[in-house]
């Protein structure tokens, strides 16, 4: 059974090496500061053996964007959830790219750029992947409104 590592333990280990990297942690995940993401991720890959990046997700919360990295260690059969946040206020939202550590991040980061508008510093080919050049807006942001017929149960539509 894949052992999901406790966020607090991993946060402690990261904190010993990189004092300012961890912003918060709980039982399930570690929240890192985005500037320290690349170094901390490198440490997780080399020293803690997280050689497999399962998935990267972005979520649009009202005050910030959150990026969630699910990491797996195939050698040790362990899993970890890593998070980082970036502010929405700036016109240009940017986070370091982890492509140099895990090649699997390539297309996933392009997808997040396309659908959320979050740029990844250091990505070799950051351009839209699903939508076409000239499409206005980033669809998965909450302020991109769709007119969906029949969404939700009758009487439960809040929007």
């Amino acid at each position: 059974m894949t052992q999901l590592l406790s966020g607090r333990d991993v946060a402690r280990q990261i904190g010993e090496r990189f004092p300012d990297a961890v912003a918060a942690s709980d039982e399930n995940a570690v929240l890192l500061n985005s500037e320290a993401l690349l170094e901390a991720a490198g440490f997780l890959k080399e020293d803690l053996g997280f050689d497999y990046l399962t998935s990267i997700t972005a979520i649009d919360y009202p005050e910030y964007f959150e990026l969630v990295y699910h990491l797996t260690s195939i050698k040790r059969n362990q899993g970890l959830v890593l998070k980082t946040r970036c502010d929405k206020g700036d016109a240009h939202v940017e986070v370091p790219s982890v492509v140099s550590l895990w090649q699997g991040a390539d297309l996933q980061e392009r997808e997040i750029y396309d659908l959320f508008g979050i740029s990844f510093k250091g990505h070799p080919n950051l351009k839209r992947i699903f939508l076409w050049d000239g499409f206005q807006g980033h669809p998965l942001r909450k302020d991109f409104v769709l007119d969906v017929p029949g969404g939700g149960l009758k009487g439960s539509r809040k929007e």
Partner: peptide, 9 residues
């Protein structure tokens, strides 16, 4: 890509 985008629009 730019040409394709223009055709789609």
């Amino acid at each position: 890509d730019r040409i394709e985008g223009a055709e789609i629009q």
